[in-house]
Simulated assay, not measured.
Amino acid sequence: MNNLITTQLPTPPHFHSEKVSEVWRVPYQERAAAATAWQKKHNIQPAILDQTRICLLLIDVQNTFCIPGFELFVGGKSGTGAVDDNRRICEFIYHHLGVITKIIPTLDTHTATQIFHPIFWVNQLGEHPIPAVTNISPTDIDQGIWQVNPDVANSITHGDYELLKKHAYHYVKQLSQNGKYPLIVWPYHSMLGGIGHALVASVEEAIFFHSLVRQSPTQFEIKGDNPLTENYSVLRPEVLIGFDENPLAQKNQRLIQQLLEFDAVIIAGQAKSHCVAWTIDDLLTEIQHIDPSLAKKVYLLEDCTSPVVVPGVVDYTEQADAAFARFAAAGMHIIKSTEPMPISS
């Protein structure tokens, strides 16, 4: 094996770690000029010349999850988890500009009337569930504790309320049968067109800089816009088949194939217990179907991801750690962003 990620480039002068927790506009033209100068100064080759192709898959490094005060800030155990993670992600990108071939950020993308948002459900008084503390099970629906809001049927099933109820009940039942998390009613988040949907500015800046230095366009992957299923993983939704046995949604087969063609896939982002874990789990499932030895291509930056922790409410740290232990047992590498990665082409 060759230790390809050992020599580190310096961080460019425009990077300020104290701004990682803030929302601001990236000055694209200034960074473009700096990228050209940086490429020449450090003699960084275009990504197309890479003999060993390395992908950095960044899961949901968006304001909604990563900026304190936003809807679903991932504080982790420390309370500053996502901010610290993103500082390290930025440093990792800058230090390894010369060897990261492609950066693929995922974008959790939602609108208001989706099955995991409060407006989708009502109780007998017509009240919506309290987000972040409400789970909905088949029993809850059977007992009439929660039912589908008839007023959203018009926008989802063209006014067919009975059809929408069948979809929703099937979905919640499938989650329980497939060993998934129960349906969690989340606060409105990652709203398409909103500030929360945008990438964290410092990370966006680093990704933009990379794309110009390496002449390798950033590949954005949208997930989560289906109104009838959650989509923690970028590779597949939580439920694929509807109650009528017709496809409810599709796996991202194109991205699965693309990831497996890289010599190495490095994964970081938010949240370790949810979208990160689910994406890795789905990738591992595909790997085990094709060739279990491919798991050794995958590197998990454990210091660049944090679990969902809401003090006094929920703590998914143990579930996240158990998932990562299972990934390591399958052959994936769990490392820190400051460690050298032995990658062979």
Rank of each mutant, 00 (worst) to 15 (best):
D225C: 04
K223F: 04
F70A: 02
P307C: 07
Y28H: 11
I290G: 02
L183V: 09
Q288R: 07
D160S: 11
S337K: 04
G126F: 04
P292D: 06
R236C: 01
Q270H: 09
M341Q: 08
N178W: 00
Y181W: 09
D303L: 09
S21N: 09
A168H: 09
G76T: 10
E339D: 15
A206K: 05
K297H: 11
T11D: 14
T229Y: 00
N246V: 03
E91A: 13
F70N: 04
I136E: 04
I335K: 12
E204W: 07
D321E: 15
W38K: 03
F243G: 01
R53Q: 15
T279K: 06
I290W: 01
V234A: 14
P105Q: 05
F65P: 00
T52D: 01
A323Q: 09
I115Y: 04
Y316H: 13
F73N: 00
I44E: 00
P118I: 10
N2E: 14
R236W: 01
E91I: 12
D244L: 02
R88P: 10
A264S: 13
T6Q: 13
N3P: 09
S293V: 08
L260A: 06
E205H: 09
T106G: 00
Q62C: 08
T134I: 05
Y171Q: 04
V308D: 01
P27A: 08
I207Y: 03
A323W: 10
T11G: 01
F116Y: 15
D151F: 14
